[in-house]
Design a protein around this nucleic acid. Structure first.
Lengths: 224, 224
DNA sequence: GTCTATAGTTTGATAGAC
DNA sequence: GTCTATCAAACTATAGAC
């Protein structure tokens, strides 16, 4: 369609290369200790080239964190879309997706988001904050549903304040290379959030699925 | 006793002044963006003076974090010493103390500990790590006791991974100037950890106190 | 102990050739 | 688009006067 698709693709991938290299180096050494020279060198370019694609070094940092916010939110909403309808299943799906994001291909980007957010210029924080808040709402709605279904007795907002930092900090103490180990940790954390054993959580999940399918088959799922 | 007590006191307080000023500035702007000039100027000195008291800037950072580790651990063990004997009461005491530390006079020092730990030279991390681990053990023992008393059904280690980051990150979303508001938040977090309402937690605490006092009066506290 | 002065690096950013 | 060359402004750390 585009008259010059390759040009566009190359431009995009150069910028993406910078974002990728920057996220790795900044995650490892910190923003202030990572020079523009370091980042450019990592993709066999020189510092001058970075200033052609980004106006300032801060703009590159903002691009890295924006990628984390955008991609992360997209992955989590997709996971919820694929999940069953019960509140427990949806909760486990969201927690699993969250762990998948911070331990997966986006882990460096997410690490930078978490660690260097305060180093962003105030204007950049103002731009990105609303996007970041979307996810908080997603989680809040889910925790509220869990409370209504009787799985959470504590204040949902406090539970969120327990859960969110814990999920983000799993990278500090756990290395989870494969999907299986991530699913396992997600179950452990969901269980701990409800103060139940993993076995109990699984049996509650089975029960929930049966009930919601029965309700669906009898046509009551929308009238309840 | 000392032949020149004032001299010694002045030396100590100069170093303490540097640590205090450094903790405030580093907590606000980050380690790499806080220059030795900034820190010295904050206490009406010049950068050369800092290098008389500390060999390098990194040594000053280590001193700041060491103060956080030492004072924090001391405050928490003291709180446990004053606490009742029941696992629930001791748990609440520890959580209250933790919140008191990160929101109290030491808050800047603790903030630096949390945010700049990775910026420490590896040797400094090796020196401080064992001290920092002491607190983890304290918390682990307490969570194990809670599990034995039936208050925690989930895996204690996972509960610790939920609780610790949450406590440290309360400063990111809550401002707690007075002791009352800190106690309140501590109760909320303890309740959420057990997945109970605050009211239920309070009634469990009352029950625990009654039982342990009755056991104490009947002389069974040591033979159970 | 504290100061001034400065050495020696490194950094973000720009200009202009190609 | 990418490179080279370079500027101006920081920074940590040291030396030596007081």
């Amino acid at each position: 369609m585009s008259p010059d698709p390759m040009r566009t693709t190359n431009d995009k991938s150069r910028i993406a290369e910078f974002i990728d290299a920057a996220s790795r180096l900044i995650a490892e050494k910190g923003y202030d200790r990572t020079s523009v020279r370091d980042i450019a060198q990592a993709i066999n370019l020189t510092s001058g080239t970075m200033f052609y694609h980004f106006k300032t070094k801060d703009d590159l940092l903002e691009a890295v964190i924006k990628k984390g916010v955008d991609d992360g939110f997209q992955l989590m909403t997709e996971a919820l879309r694929r999940a069953e309808s019960g509140s427990l299943a949806r909760f486990l799906a969201l927690v699993t997706a969250h762990i998948g994001v911070v331990h997966g291909d986006l882990r460096h980007v997410h690490h930078v988001w978490l660690r260097e957010w305060d180093r962003l210029p105030k204007e950049a924080r103002v731009r990105l904050r609303p996007l970041a808040e979307q996810y908080r709402e997603l989680l809040d709605n889910l925790l509220f549903a869990l409370a209504q279904d009787g799985h959470i007795k504590a204040d949902p907002a406090t539970v969120r304040h327990l859960l969110l930092p814990a999920l983000n900090w799993t990278t500090a103490w756990a290395t989870l290379p494969d999907q299986h180990s991530r699913t396992l940790l997600a179950e452990q954390i969901c269980a701990a959030t409800l103060n139940q054993t993993v076995d109990t959580l699984r049996s509650l999940l089975r029960k929930e699925t049966e009930v919601s399918r029965a309700a669906f088959l009898s046509g009551n799922s929308l009238t309840d």
